[in-house]
């Protein structure tokens, strides 16, 4: 038993750089494969709605907007970022992105809609 066992470490730290990262200014970046915001590629979607069925939080809605055209509505407030939809998607239309700073003051901005590309006008 000795008092002040951490003295050495503590004094050494005085002359070291702090371990803190100044977050909003410096960012450490997310590792590869981080499960952040989900992105949706409408051109790959076949409308099987497996993602809707497996989503534990009911955060995804796939709407049919035309012949073989689907739009996805994500509720980021509900999403728990488990990326089960990415696993469930048969056509890899859903992908996790490393984006994680998704806090919003306005609840409406938490609804993210991925519109399908504008259909080529039939007249052309």
């Amino acid at each position: 038993m000795k008092p002040g066992r951490m003295l050495n470490l503590v004094l050494q730290s005085l002359f070291k750089r702090p371990a803190t990262l100044n977050y909003p200014v410096d960012k450490s970046g997310m590792p590869k494969g981080f499960r952040g915001k989900i992105t949706f590629d409408p051109s790959k979607c076949i409308g099987c709605r497996m993602c809707m069925r497996d989503c534990p939080a009911n955060a995804i809605t796939i709407n049919k907007v035309g012949e073989k055209r689907f739009e996805a509505v994500f509720d980021l407030g509900r999403c728990i970022y488990c990326a089960q939809c990415v696993d469930s998607c048969l056509k890899r239309a859903l992908v996790s992105s490393p984006e994680f700073e998704l806090a919003q003051l306005d609840k409406k901005k938490l609804k993210v809609v991925f519109h399908p590309p504008a259909q080529e006008a039939s007249g052309l």
């Binding site: 997310m30 590792p31 590869k32 981080f34 499960r35 970022y81 488990c82 089960q84 696993d87």
Partner: peptide, 20 residues
């Protein structure tokens, strides 16, 4: 985070195995 994709709630388990 590097192995599983998140710091907490790793989501590595699935029924029948692991996901990554």
């Amino acid at each position: 985070a590097q192995l599983t994709g998140n710091r907490v709630n790793y989501g590595i388990n699935t029924i029948g195995g692991v996901r990554r």
